[in-house]
Structure formats: C-alpha cells, structure tokens
Amino acid sequence: MSKNLVGNHIRKLRFNHDEMTQQQLADKAGVTRQTIVALEKGNYSPSLELAFRIALVFKLSLEEVFFYGDTVNLNDQVNDN
C-alpha cells in the first residue's frame, strides 16, 4: 500500500465545529461516513472536488483543512530550487 501523502485536520475541525459527528460531516460533504473515517485515518486522498466540499463545510480554505506530506520539508525544497 503506497504511503498517503495528503494529510488533513478534519478530526480537529469537527470538534471545533460544535463537535460535529462524522455522519453530519459526511451528509454535508455528500459522502458516506466510511469516507470521512478513511480521511481521518489518513487512508485515503480525496479528489479535489471532495476536498473543496469539505473545506466549504468548515468555511475554510483548502490549505487550512488539507496539507501535502511534510509541508515544512517541501517548502525547504522549493526554496532551495
């Protein structure tokens, strides 16, 4: 199984939004609870469309909900180039 490089803050954000349940988030994002479980465990990288839908539920930008791998190291690599 390839390592999933897309991380997220969904679990933390749910609790900050009146302890929203996985099912409530799933209903608002138009997916099943299984997908939210997989996302929180880091077992699945969502499509761009789903990522935007989840960010919209929390009224945040995409970068505030999702991050790519070790973002600090990635930024260093970009700066080196």
Binding site: Q23, G30, V31, T32, R33, Q34, T35, A38, Y44, P46, S47, L50
Partner: peptide, 12 residues
C-alpha cells in the same frame, strides 16, 4: 440506529 448509505461515493 445508523443511517444505511443509499448511494456510492468516490471511495466506494
């Protein structure tokens, strides 16, 4: 008492 999913999403 959980809702049975009535559709398949992208992960499914």
């Amino acid at each position: 008492k959980e809702k049975v999913p009535t559709f398949e999403d992208e992960l499914d």
